[in-house]
Amino acid sequence: MARWDYKKDIDYNAIDMQKVRGDSFLFQLLTIASFIEITSDTYAKNLSEYYDDNPKAVQWLQEDWEKEEIQHGEALKRYVLHVWPEFPWQKAYERFLELYLPLCNTGSFQPTRGLEMLARMIVETGTSTMYRAFEDYAKSLDEPVLAGLTHYIYKDEVNHYSYFDRYFKYYNQSENLGRKEILQVIVQRLKEASSEDIEMGFQSIYEIQNDAVFDRSSYELFKKELNKLAKKHYPYSMAIKMTMQPLNLNKTLETTMVPVIRGAMKVLGI
């Protein structure tokens, strides 16, 4: 599959500025995403070291996954700076690195290669569904450039999920992981998705914009807006199906469980 190129395939000059310029929540959302995505080289290096037994996996991580993730960050950064050129993106990003890089190490990886591939599948579930929600939000704003950009990223993330799934199955041939072990990692990763990196991104923006110590109450307001976006635009059924896939459930059972889990999530306000 040919890789898209944000410099050629995204016409930033066609952005409808009136639709997005005054949307501070969108600014925060896209800026945080750009910080996280553009730092993927650190994770790619750590993953490559962890999977040094598998040259094919390392090649894919370095030549495809890393390059595509970084392009996502660069593309989002360019969108942010086109719409909000006064924002000191680099200065805020440097603050983000101060907060974020100490967390990026192999010490947080799962104890086996199969389980770590599983953890990456859950992460990619989060990113692919998140960008699908962003695309839907952009369409609701009637801003086609952002809708097109987030669609490209969404498709990449779904493809990444498929690769991590493939390598999870490869390692599971020898690890023979039970559903209990798989479910424990799924639950762990879902809990972690609350998510430190998003808060660090928001904190970096806040401190640079306000030249002040981080006020966490402002982040709580951002989270409320994020929840509103999720309730309107997040593809819950897709997320549930992707999360359940590693459990290898009977298709009839899986189909039955999706609306049950979705109903429980609504009751809990998720």
Rank of each mutant, 00 (worst) to 15 (best):
K7Y: 12
K7E: 08
D9S: 07
N13D: 05
V20D: 04
S24P: 00
Q28N: 12
L29W: 14
L30F: 12
I32L: 04
F35D: 10
I36L: 07
S40V: 02
T42Q: 11
Y43L: 05
A44T: 08
K45A: 15
Y50I: 04
Y51M: 04
D52W: 06
D53P: 09
D53T: 05
N54P: 11
P55G: 11
P55T: 09
A57H: 07
V58T: 04
Q59S: 14
W60D: 11
W60V: 12
Q62A: 14
W65M: 09
E66D: 09
E68I: 06
H72S: 13
E74D: 13
L76H: 04
K77M: 15
Y79L: 15
Y79N: 08
Y79C: 11
F87M: 10
F87P: 09
W89C: 10
Q90F: 13
Q90K: 15
R95D: 07
Y100K: 15
L101D: 11
C104A: 15
Q110K: 07
L115N: 03
M121G: 00
M121Y: 05
E124L: 13
T125Q: 12
G126P: 10
T127I: 09
T129V: 05
M130G: 14
R132G: 00
R132W: 09
E135A: 13
A138P: 00
V145T: 13
V145K: 01
T150A: 03
D156S: 03
S162Q: 12
F164H: 12
F164E: 07
Y171D: 03
N172L: 11
Q173T: 03
E175G: 11
N176P: 05
G178L: 15
R179P: 05
E181V: 06
V185T: 09
V187I: 14
E192L: 10
S194I: 08
S194Q: 07
E196P: 01
I198P: 00
E199F: 07
I205E: 00
Q209A: 14
N210A: 06
A212L: 08
A212K: 10
A212I: 02
V213A: 13
R216W: 09
Y219Q: 06
K223M: 13
L226I: 00
A230N: 01
K231R: 10
S237N: 08
K241D: 14
M244T: 01
M244D: 02
N250E: 15
N250D: 15
K251L: 12
L253P: 00
V258C: 06
P259V: 08
R262S: 13
V267F: 12
